[in-house]
Nucleic acid binder design. Sequence first.
DNA 1: CGGCTTTATTTGTAAATGCAAATATATGCC
DNA 2: GGCATATATTTGCATTTACAAATAAAGCCG
Lengths: 152, 152
Amino acid sequence: MLDLANYLPYLLNRSGSRIAASFTQAVREHGITLSAWRVLAALNHADGQRVGQLAEMTSIEVSTLSRLLDQMQARGLIERRRPDDDARTVTAHLTPAGRETTLAIIPIAHHYEKVALEGFSAEEAATLRLMLKRLYDNMGRLEEEETAAPLR
Amino acid sequence: MLDLANYLPYLLNRSGSRIAASFTQAVREHGITLSAWRVLAALNHADGQRVGQLAEMTSIEVSTLSRLLDQMQARGLIERRRPDDDARTVTAHLTPAGRETTLAIIPIAHHYEKVALEGFSAEEAATLRLMLKRLYDNMGRLEEEETAAPLR
DNA sequence: CGGCTTTATTTGTAAATGCAAATATATGCC
DNA sequence: GGCATATATTTGCATTTACAAATAAAGCCG
């Protein structure tokens, strides 16, 4: 039997979906989608990441990301560069406009995090963050095993 | 500034994405997508839910769900019924084949939950579940406010 | 009862997504 | 150096998704 009400992937998905939905609506008027925000946030954290790294950071599939970058580039939010040391790779960089948009959205981002954590003590919030990181690491180890042992 | 490495929506999304990705691959050979599994799990939890309820349960948008139900019905996993008491509504029900498929997948579901929680004590896991529920409730209250005060 | 508003689901349509194939460059080995 | 293999990104294409509009049935109130 499966106790759905306590099934972790279910709990994770539904809370993530609700935050995503509210945030998506909130940034809509800025003409930004949730995916685009993830890219902005990732580049704000570390500018000049390669497409593959960025895909990893944002949990966006590389081919989807490649096309999203096309749009963001067309809108002047980011630009692509081809590093000298490895011409296979492409790095993405925030433009001034991209940086400006990011800064405009950060307060909204903080707001939703605050709402999500309403009623949480600082310790509880810290515990939750740590647990989510552990969970992520656990699944990461699994992925490695799975790619190491190809499926047939 | 935004400290992405500790930004809750980011942590939530990335762990959810990893579980989703691994699980998706695992059930692929059963010819089931993650979304379809969510429907099966929701109906296994409570059969005969209306489309709207099911959308809420699965975090799948109603129109998307409507089409997903078409497919699942075509594949014989579920069937739709129109209740006597309210002919606007449609309820979804697992067929025997749907139930069978669900039972076949449940062990896989348990497996990934176990992997995700590796290294967690029972108390820690319980704490995490509770926190995710609180988070979900917090966002739910926000949604109510937002729909109560329509955005222009 | 008959119209008016609300609720529930489906359908139209454009955009986003994901897998697989194509392309381009780099690295290793003889 | 030249060829085979590996890595990084983009593109082709079919499917999924989401918003808005359409449809259908209730519920309400005169």
